[in-house]
Design a protein around this nucleic acid. Structure first.
Length: 423
RNA sequence: GGAGAGAUGGCUGAGCGGUUUAAAGCGGCGGUCUUGAAAACCGUUGUACCGAAAGGUACCGGGGGUUCGAAUCCCUCUCUCUCCGCCA
């Protein structure tokens, strides 16, 4: 959520920058301006009346103490004259505040100055490409065929138990999942991230804090009976640890990591996008989160990108890093780098990580602050990234390392799997 | 799931409906003293909003109500603790 004071002071600039996200903000901001003005007026008037009535009440108390009941009674009548007006103003003020929030929440975060203008995925900027070139033997298979040939993943079974997009991993398929999770967590620990096991369901306040709610909730499974949401990413519970928290300036940066399954409804997806492991309703992911001093957040974003790159590299996958354009980035992000690995058999790029700086956008919703050197409260910056999401990594691993008689897995995983080859 | 008790500032913990403008202690910050420190003593101590400022308003788990006036009384929700039941 953008800060109201900033919004009103730099109106033109903000409208211009939101254009990069292809969001026209002018009418919303104008409306905000009007409502805010009404809100201020209402509060000033209300506060004056409350002050008046508080004073009368105090006097009544004193008069009662002195036994001057008649005088007290007169004052009571005086206060009663304003009572209706006070409650009217109070209702009005609450209403205006609600309206204001409802509008504020509609505005996406401002893109940083590095964000390329552009409408869709094709307009993303390739920052760099890395990893080995892959030449497959003729007759190489897509990961879904490999998965069933070696009995690693049973999509049909998941279909039976739950529905499409909930695969069942078996044997070495399941072990590979566990190995990747352990590997990613151990690496994050080495980098100083505190490992967290967080709830897989969150309440609405948490969903609001990180920006999934309101309006963007079509992506989440909703447990209506209890008012909970299944998390679409560990970002939600992990970042919300710091909701309503004032951190000490010297504690920056706060580094957290967590493995969780992620649940996404993915309404409207179809075709080759959802084939095999390409897009699932439930998948595993290790997430890294940082809470940072505003002065350092972009240096930290670079650091996180470097870290994620080291992971992808260590798995020997061909990859590329994209700087997302305004049209392709998320609502809450100021700058996002996506990592894609090459699916050799499908001959397409698959997104396996998204690393973002949200600046103060989430903090403002979370009320996540620190006290600066002058003793003023300021919003912290939040960042997060996948490190990494498993299914597409598995898809790329299977396809990249397939031979005619088996699949070799990267050496870094051996100590977690206990074996080197699928055959 | 049932019964009972509770939720007060950074922490502990008082608080007959009206000098509560939330006591006191601890902690934090500043100062005096000291070569330095400790001790002692003095002062200070939250957040949000309105206001150019002076100042004002709100906040005692959340929401609502009674009252001229609510931390205090009533309703309701949430959470915590104790006991019982169930259970990995």
């Amino acid at each position: 959520m953008l800060q109201l004071s900033v919004l009103l002071n730099q109106k033109e600039e903000i409208i211009k920058r939101l254009n990069i996200k292809h969001f026209s903000a002018e009418s919303i901001i104008n409306e905000i301006e009007q409502i805010d003005e009404k809100r201020r007026k209402t509060q000033t008037e209300l506060d004056q009346l409350l002050a008046l009535s508080n004073n009368y009440s105090k006097e009544i108390g004193q008069l009662m103490g002195q036994g001057k009941k008649d005088e007290a009674e007169l004052k009571k009548q005086e206060v009663l004259r304003h009572k209706d007006h006070i409650s009217e103003l109070q209702t009005q003020k609450n209403q205006l505040e609600e309206e204001l929030l409802a509008l504020l929440v509609k505005l996406p975060n401002l893109p940083s100055s590095l964000v390329p203008s552009g409408k869709a995925a094709e307009d993303n900027e390739v920052v760099r490409t890395g990893g080995p070139d892959i030449t497959l033997y003729s007759g190489a298979k897509a990961h879904w065929d490999l998965a069933s040939q070696y009995r690693l993943i049973d999509f049909e079974l998941g279909n039976k138990i739950t529905g499409a997009g909930f695969p069942v991993y078996l044997g070495k398929g399941a072990q590979l999942q566990r190995a990747l999770i352990s590997y990613f967590l151990e690496k994050a620990n080495e980098q100083g991230y505190l490992e967290i096991q967080a709830p897989l369901m969150v309440n609405a306040l948490s969903g609001f804090g990180t920006g999934q709610l309101p309006d963007k909730d079509a992506q989440m499974y909703h447990v209506t009976e209890d008012g909970f949401y299944l998390i679409p990413t560990a970002e939600v519970p992990v970042t919300n640890i710091y909701r309503d928290v004032t951190v000490k300036e010297e504690d920056f940066p706060i580094k957290l990591t967590g493995y969780t399954p992620c649940f996404r409804r993915e309404a409207g997806s179809y075709g080759k996008d959802v084939r095999g492991l390409n897009r699932l309703h439930q998948f595993d992911k290790v997430e890294i989160v940082q809470i940072a001093h505003p002065e350092n957040s972009y240096r930290i974003l670079d650091e996180m990108v470097e870290y994620v790159e080291s992971l992808v590299k260590s798995l020997g996958l061909k990859y590329r890093i994209l700087r997302l354009c305004g049209g392709d980035m998320s609502f809450a992000s100021a700058l996002t780098y996506d990592f894609e690995v090459y699916s050799a058999a499908q001959q397409r790029w698959l997104e396996v990580s998204s690393v973002s700086n949200f600046e103060a956008f989430q903090s403002n919703r979370l009320k996540l602050k620190y006290k600066d050197k002058n003793g003023k409260m300021q919003f912290a910056h939040t960042l997060n990234g996948s490190a990494l999401a498993l299914p597409r990594i598995v898809a790329a691993l299977l396809e990249t390392y397939q031979k005619e008689d088996g699949i070799d897995i990267p050496e870094v995983l051996w100590k977690y799997t206990g074996w080197k080859r699928i055959n």
